[in-house]
């Protein structure tokens, strides 16, 4: 997995919750359609504009809310990494467990504008806004969590260790 991610920024504010990312309707939709409803209540039409490799930058308390697979929707849209002022602990776990990197980076929302191109280095913990030239630093994810992300999520780890039944339900 590439640990230096370069992409176009989508900027969001504070308190972006799981129910915005994974509206209730997603639960009963076919799996491939679920990501298209991301941010349905707060930013209708956004999901249709996201391209693979785009980067989501947000304010504080990103991912507050439920254990629903909100990170899977972002990953399904092709978001490569989430960089937020602060991240809810449950969202962090869910994100890591589906293989989507998410980092807390204080001050990021003040320096990055929507549409900018940024480079996020997950190993060194640096973010460079290529458009403005501004930079920010963050604490890299612990190696233990990066291992799960690099494996493609926790289910792949379980599969590798022989825990998964090959007979679906």
């Amino acid at each position: 997995m590439n640990k230096v991610l370069k992409g176009k920024v989508w900027a969001f504010g504070d308190n972006i919750n799981t129910d915005l990312m994974y509206p209730h309707a997603c639960y009963t939709l076919p799996e491939e359609e679920r990501p298209l409803h991301t941010m349905w209540a707060n930013r209708p039409g956004w999901a249709q504009q996201v391209n693979s490799g785009d980067i989501l930058v947000a304010g504080k308390n990103f991912g507050v809310g439920s254990s629903r697979p909100a990170a899977s929707n972002l990953k399904g849209l092709g978001i490569s990494v989430v960089v937020a002022e602060s991240v809810n602990g449950l969202f962090l776990r869910n994100s890591v467990n589906v293989g989507l990197p998410v980092v807390s980076c204080q001050g990021v929302s003040g320096i990055v504008r929507e549409g900018d191109t940024v480079t996020v280095n997950l190993e060194t913990g640096t973010l460079i806004d290529e458009t403005s030239g501004k930079t920010a630093e963050f604490r890299p994810l612990p190696g233990f969590l990066m291992d799960i992300i690099e494996a493609g999520g926790i289910i792949e780890v379980l599969r590798k260790n022989g825990y998964i039944d090959s007979n679906p339900l």
């Binding site: 799981t18 809310g65 439920s66 254990s67 697979p69 990170a71 602990g89 449950l90 776990r93 869910n94 467990n97 589906v98 999520g153 926790i154 289910i155 780890v157 379980l158 260790n161 825990y163």
Partner: peptide, 29 residues
């Protein structure tokens, strides 16, 4: 997996919301 599992704190113990993939990990290990 319920995100309000934090409720268990009232009983002098720990629980917290987990995602379904993580719950699968706990069930296995």
């Amino acid at each position: 997996t319920d995100s309000h599992s934090i409720a268990a704190g009232a009983y002098n113990m720990l629980s917290r919301g987990l995602g379904t993939p993580e719950l699968m990990q706990v069930i296995c290990t």
